[in-house]
Structures are given as C-alpha cells and as structure tokens.
Design a protein around this nucleic acid. Structure first.
Lengths: 185, 185, 185, 185
DNA sequence: AAGTAATCGAGACGGTACGTCCCGTCTTAGC
DNA sequence: GCTAAGACGGGACGTACCGTCTCGATTACTT
C-alpha cells in the first residue's frame, strides 16, 4: 500500500466556495447549492466532499469572518472592556451586509441540523469571549444570564428588525450589564 | 356597482387551516402547504386566496394562540408583576411544543417578507404587554432596552438552544430587570 | 302557492355564452369555463344549468354555425350535386377561423364524453346530408365508405395540417368519389 | 472548451418513461405527468429535461411502437400490396388498446405544438410507406389524395367512433383505392 | 516516460414541495 | 326563482432545489 496517490485537493476551490456563499448571503440572493457551486466555478460534489450540508458551508463562511471582529484588549476596567467589546460587536453586526448574513445563517440553522451545530459552536465561541472579559474582573460571578442578555438583545433586534443594532446601543447595554454584574458580585 | 358579490369567505375553512398549521408545527412534522391543505381538508388555492405565503399562515396560527398566554393582572409591585409575567412567558415558551413552533415561525419569517411582517406585529404586541406593566409603576423610565433584554434572552436561547428557557430563568431575569429599571428611574 | 316567482331566464345569456365560446375557440385562446363565463358576463352556474360540461357548450356553439353551410340544391347530376356540396364544405372548413374551431372541437370531444356525443351527432348530421345527395341518384348503392372517404380527407387534413383543405381539393375528391359510386352501382 | 461534461443521459430512464407513457395510454388510465414519472421511477424534471411537454413524450412513445406495424413486402400486384398494407394497418389500429392510444395522441397534439410536430412527423412517415407501395406499381400517378383517403377514413372513424375500423374495412377500401389509381394512371 | 488513482467541473439523476391554473360545485346578494 | 360574482375541494401542471451519481479531463505520485 502506498502513502498517497492521485490529485491533491484544491484549496483555492475551498476558498472560492466560502467566498461565493458569503457573497450570495450578503447580496440577499437565494443561497442555493447550485448557485454557490456555479459562482465558485466548482462542482457540487466538491462541496459535499468537505461539508455535510448546505447550511454547514454557509455557516463556516460566516464564522471565519466573525472570529476577528471584536477587540479583546483590556482598557483597565470591567466597564471599559465590556463597552469596547459590546459596542464593537454591535457596530459590526449592525452593518447591512452583516445583518443580512447573520439572518441568513439563522435561517439555515433552523432547517439544517449540521448548520445548527455550527451555529451553536459559533455563538458559544462568541459567548466565551464575553465570559473571559467578565471573568478577568469578576472571577466568581455567575455571568450566564448577563452574557445572554447582551447577545439576546443583539440577535433579537437583528431578527425582528424593530430597533437599531448600533454602537450606541452596545455602549448603553454594556453599562447596564456592568452595573448588574457588580451588584451580583 | 355592488358592494360585494359571490360566496363569502368560509370561516370554518380558515379555522381548519390555522389549526392544521399549528398541529403540524407542534407535532414536528414537515409543514408543507400540501400537508396543511390535506389535513384541513382544503384546496391549496383556498390558502393562497387568503394568505400571501405559507409563512404568513403559520405565523397567523401562532399569533392567535400566543395572545392569551401571559398574565397581566397586578400583584402589587413592579417586581411581582414583572416576575409573574416573565416567568409565565418563559414557562410557556419553554415547552417543547411551543419551542418548536416559535423556531418554525422564525424560520418562515426569515424567508418570507409577509411572514416577517406578521412576526414583527406579533412580537410588537408581546413587547407592548411588557411596556404596559413597567409603565404602570415607572411611567417615565425608558424601557426599550430592558424589554429587549427580556425577549432577547428568550428568543436567543430558543434559537440557539444552549441554555434552558424555563420559569426559573424567567424569575431570575425579571428580578434583574426590575433592579435595572429602578436604578434608571 | 304561487304560479311563478323569480326572475325569468335570460335567453340573451345563452346566446352570449355560445358567442363567447366560439370567439375564444376561433381566437385560439385557451377555452376555459372561467374565460367563457367572464367574456359572456355570465355566472359559471348559468352555463352548467344548460350544458353538462364545457365541451358540450363549445360543440353546440360550433354546431349552430355549421348547419347552414353546404348547399343541398340539385344541379341535375350526381357529379354536379356532389361537387357543389363537397367543394362548398371544403371551402368553408378551410378558412383559418373555421379550421381552428373544428380542431378545438375535436380537442374537447377527446376529453369529454358529453362533447364527444355532440360531435358524434354533428358529424352524423353532416354525413346524412351527403347520403341524401347520393341516394337521390343511386338509391341502392352502399355509400358508407364513400361518405367516410370524403369527411375522412377533410378531418384528417384539418387535424394533421399536412395538406390544404380548399375548394379545389373538394372538387377533385367529389369527382373521384362519384366515379367510385357509379362503378359500385 | 470541452465537447461535453457531466453525466450522460440515462437511456434506461428514457426507455422507462416511454414505456410508462404507452402503458398508461393503453390501460386507459389518466396520463398524468406525475403518473408517468411515478411508474417509470423517474423524477418529473428528467422528463422535462428531454421533452418539451407531456404530449411530446406520449407521441414519441407511440411513434416508436407504430413504425413496426404494417407489412411492406410485395405480393405481386398493386391490389395485393395495397390490401396487405391497408388491411394490416386497419386491423392494428382497430384494437381497443391502439385506438385509445391514437385518440390520446391527437388530444395531446391539439393542445401542444411540440406534440403536433411529432404527430405530423409520425403521420408523414405512415403516408410515405403507402406512397412507396403505390409508386412501385404506378410511378407516375399523383397519389396524394388517394393516400389521404385511406388514412382519412382510418382517423375519421377512430376519432368519431361511428363505424368500425377493422380488417374488412381495410380490405374493401384498398380495393376501391386500387381501382381509382388504375383509372388515374 | 508510463502507469495509476484521487480529485476536479459539469451536469443528469430520483425525489419533494412549491405556487398556479382550471374544473365542476356551492353560496351569497341583487334583481 | 334566476342571475353574476366568486369561494370552495380537488388535482395536474411545470419549476426550483436538494443531495447523489456518473462522466471525461486533469494532476501528481510511483514505478
């Protein structure tokens, strides 16, 4: 038996697929697998070789982008760190392109269990970032509910669309949550 | 010209359609238009005559049910009223049947603008209930963000599924929000 | 008990229905019952009160027109009478409007047994006219096959469209059939 | 640019579709596209990928069958050849199964231009067979009208249903037409 | 250099749901 | 009582995607 034969896999294709998915999502066009494959100049089978379902592709496309979003450098206080992080998160999520993408992601996750798993992982990662910030200043407080209040407002407004998701909201919310955490400590 | 001619809308059919939609949603079966029509003993055209899309049907079905959910009777304090309402809301939303339905609704709303409009109306109605409770005790406080924190946690957990939506959570969240509101007043 | 109440039935409506059917047929537009009713400014139920099916309406519309088509006056010989009748029949049937109508009729008759019955009656009537002409000159000859040859060529060409249906063809065919009948006598 | 990419057309599927169509037609069951697809174990899209309409499928199914129907071997005389061919044609077309099929085909052709084109081709092929027989014995006679008399009687009787389509009729008609042709030569 | 095999783009496949169209029936209010 | 309008249950239509399967072409390692 030999170590390896055959053509190597094309990493450009993988990148093209993720880009195509993000583009479609952001453009508001229907995100069909055929459309992704066509736009990426890739066969559908190539997509299924690497992802278990359409939703998983879309989510991975998003996740990559989102990871490098909000700052984690410290400002010297819980209030400051919280505000910097939450405001940046809200500011980014509030851009029209990003909003469309996040909505698209939830839409996929609700129809596809693979996508749901990736979304769960993605949001867990985001929550973890926030935990770490809180833990640095208040290591013993139970922060679960506070964290969910932050992301809850974000996603709720994104999905329903009844109110702004912007930096100011993030700032205001961060201050409120900081007070709440200090009181609980 | 006449005011109206032709057969009137059959309200039994309307009720049967909404019931069928809710049943399928709650049963976790795929909510196909054909399935709704079949279960309601109704032609598909009858559905499309009165609703612009599948999602709109599903949402209207839900909205009707949800309106009579959480109590609005007063307990004598903001804390008490808030806790009663939020805890009841979380308890109801946390049942598996209801969770499935709400998730299905968002899924529809994200793909269908008509459904999105109905979801917006539904959630606006829910928020309004909460505003009224707060306003009774603190008429001058800006409650928007507080209200969104409550429903934000609810929907965020429902959609991601990483944490419980139950009465205890509702109780705890209500207390936190009450404190927050008193501080802001 | 009263002798009669209610609105009298509207014979104009009947005429309007038949006209509408013929118009649609000749115009090549899809002959749906809704279209007939709409064009005739008539309720669908009014149509079904008088005809058993859509096809029957269409056929009656045609039959009325067709009955007064070919001459039956005598010219003094079998050849002459036959030629006059057949040439006139072919000339009339060959007009584009008439062709479209006849094709439409067969189309209805093939999908609707009521329509088929009326078409059978209509064609029987047409054949009868031809029998009478032949019988006047050759009372004892079996003319069935000869008659079917005449109408066969007519309908076959109308339906397939591979060759002309015109006066010249009718003339030529009449001469051939006359010879055939004389030989058989 | 490549000559071809992608999976090739599945000829088994094509055969299964045509068989299913013929079976339904012959069985007198409603020839639904869904029924054809279901019986052929084929997706509806596969049918629409290769035929422009339902009627085209049905006609192609028929055409294939019909080509190997009537004999073209010579018997030694025009009368003999004509009788053999026409009698065989009438005998075959007169079977209940075949009659139903042919009627169904015309029905399709009258509603669908693609089907009409295939029917035109099919009938042209049948006429050509008859021309060839006549031409062998009488190369210079104009046989168009004679040929249409034969097929005219066939189709006229099939569609109206007022008289038999059987071997005896074919035999009698062949004799008549043979005489007619000899006279014209 | 020739042989071998994994991977590629393309696209046909079986299947499910969609939203539209039309049929023939039923139900109104108006004349 | 009959009408025009039009809603009803039902069912076929042709389209859009899904996720799988099948091609010939390409690529890269092994011999």
């Amino acid at each position: 038996m030999r170590a390896h034969t055959g053509r190597r896999r094309n990493d450009e294709a993988k990148a093209a697929i993720l880009t195509a998915a993000t583009d479609l999502l952001a453009a508001g066009e229907p995100v069909t697998l055929g459309a992704i494959a066509g736009r990426a100049q890739v066969g559908k089978q190539t997509i299924y070789r690497w992802w278990p379902s359409k939703g998983a592709v879309v989510l991975e496309a998003m996740t990559e982008r989102a990871r490098s979003l909000a700052p984690t450098t410290s400002t010297g206080s819980l209030e400051g760190d919280l505000e910097a992080f939450v405001a940046a998160t809200f500011a980014a999520a509030g851009t029209p392109e990003y909003t469309a993408t996040l909505r698209g992601i939830v839409s996929e996750a609700l129809r596809d269990e693979h996508a749901a798993a990736v979304l769960a992982e993605f949001t867990a990662d985001r929550r973890e970032q926030l935990y770490l910030i809180i833990e640095r200043w208040l290591p013993d407080v139970a922060a679960d509910l506070a964290v969910d209040q932050v992301y809850g407002v974000l996603w709720y407004r994104l999905l329903i669309g009844h109110a702004e998701v912007d930096e100011a909201t993030g700032t205001q919310l961060a201050a409120t949550i900081a007070t709440q955490l200090h009181a609980a400590a």
